[in-house]
Design a protein around this nucleic acid. Sequence first.
DNA 1: GTCATTGCAAACGCTTTGCATCTGT
DNA 2: ACAGATGCAAAGCGTTTGCAATGAC
Lengths: 135, 135
Amino acid sequence: MTAPETSTRRPTRQQVAVAEALDEHGDFTSAQDLHAVLRSQGNSVGLATVYRALQAMAADGEVDVLRTAEGEAVYRRCSSSHHHHLVCRNCGRTVEVEGPAVEKWATRVSAEHGFRDVTHQMEIFGVCMKCPTDD
Amino acid sequence: MTAPETSTRRPTRQQVAVAEALDEHGDFTSAQDLHAVLRSQGNSVGLATVYRALQAMAADGEVDVLRTAEGEAVYRRCSSSHHHHLVCRNCGRTVEVEGPAVEKWATRVSAEHGFRDVTHQMEIFGVCMKCPTDD
DNA sequence: GTCATTGCAAACGCTTTGCATCTGT
DNA sequence: ACAGATGCAAAGCGTTTGCAATGAC
């Protein structure tokens, strides 16, 4: 057992707001995007607070974090349906794909190396069929 | 074939230096790291020039680019041996792993969606066996 | 009342860019 | 000589942090 329930501290309105905004979005979002959404909802929260709330949630293992190609950090609720992205590097089209094979492989190599409490991220970049062969 | 040979422009000493340093490193490196290496080799190249050279190579499709969890961009020669990383989020230890299963899965889903010329990135985060159960 | 959290703004690290200089052809 | 590449330093962007004010318990 890895005692994961340290999450019993989200007392403030702001942290609840961030958590719920993230929840509603459902997929990966950036801190700045969440900040803008909250502000437009009238539920104004400082940008720094959004970052801090997201960090706290990440530390608690409540959210996954990864970086976009542009260097922006994006966050997603852990319990969200887990899928990967297939991105066309020409037109930007994105397809969400699921991969039991990948999940299993990740679990296996983690176990082989004695790692526990693992998450993973994977993205595939290519050129989709609607884009011309000659760029 | 996708006519990839647009790479006929690397006339200057600095661009050659960056390309070779990247070549010698063989795995993902950051621009700043390359800059430090070049400087220590006496082959001083401006940091901005390193960035520009890497951008040019990426535009030509000669290198793959991705972002570390800390937001740093890392570059790798396309032809390099391809493996993934298993990262301990507690002590930072990194294990390089190879995964035929993942490669095949990536190829398959890409094909299923009509994508071509694909690359992928994957990283697994967990806690390694040398780190205490209770953080 | 006490202590953690907020918010603002300044600091920070990585990357990009403007501009004068230099290099290769 | 000219076009493009270089280097420096400043700007840019997302993120983090210091500190006084605020809010929760």
